[in-house]
Design a protein around this nucleic acid. Structure first.
Lengths: 105, 105
DNA sequence: TGTCCACGTTCGGAGTAGCGATACAAAAAA
DNA sequence: TTTTTTGTATCGCTACTCCGAACGTGGACA
């Protein structure tokens, strides 16, 4: 079980973000993002946590350790993004999924 | 779209908790729980948020407004289909969604 | 070798999260 | 009625969030 700081760093590296980039995406300062990754224990506000989770495409619940698998968090984050799309784009995605399933079947 | 305070109060009432009870369940003080429900705007830490979400049987993401209310049947059906796919196909779909969002932006 | 420079690290400080104490009004229970 | 439980509201305090602005440091070019 990894800490919040480790989760943030791992996800940031995986996405190839620098501290500055993640700071900008999450409307934080570079120094603060660094503190979250390195200081013990990091205790960000719910707001910051939500922004960082969104920037890293995971749920706040995953960062908080309230969620089991990274795969599950990834799926939920995907679904969240999907839900925010407009209806026509949603349908596009749905059709693409059907196509993939058809060729795979 | 309701505020964090309204969500907490509604969920608390629905479960029949008093302020003191929710405070105890979420390891907070009664005065602070009241502030979360009534002060504008409440800015709880991620920790507190997770504890309160757990006490109220919801996700922190829901309280943060990052998780939508029970969506349409169409969306849920789509998500169920998606979850049944294998990892590589899931990633394909995720990448396609990113592409659509990127070109729309 | 040198000097950029992108990136990570560190620090001081303003503002605030969160608590315990306290007080009082409504409501409910007795 | 009186008593007890809930909700509302404020105060002072400590510890921490979060920022800006420095400072260090390795690597990429000549």
């Amino acid at each position: 079980m990894s800490t919040l700081g480790e989760k943030i760093r791992d996800l940031r590296k995986k996405k190839g973000f620098t501290l500055d980039q993640l700071a900008e995406l999450s409307k934080s300062s570079k120094s603060y993002v660094w503190e979250l990754e390195n200081k013990d224990p990091p205790r960000p506000s719910g707001e910051k946590l939500a922004l960082i989770a969104a920037a890293l495409d995971v749920t706040a619940d995953y960062l908080l350790g309230a969620e089991a698998e990274p795969g599950t968090a990834e799926d939920k984050a995907f679904f969240r993004k999907y839900q925010k799309m407009d209806a026509p784009q949603k349908q596009q995605i749905r059709e693409m999924l059907d196509i993939i399933n058809r060729t795979r079947k």
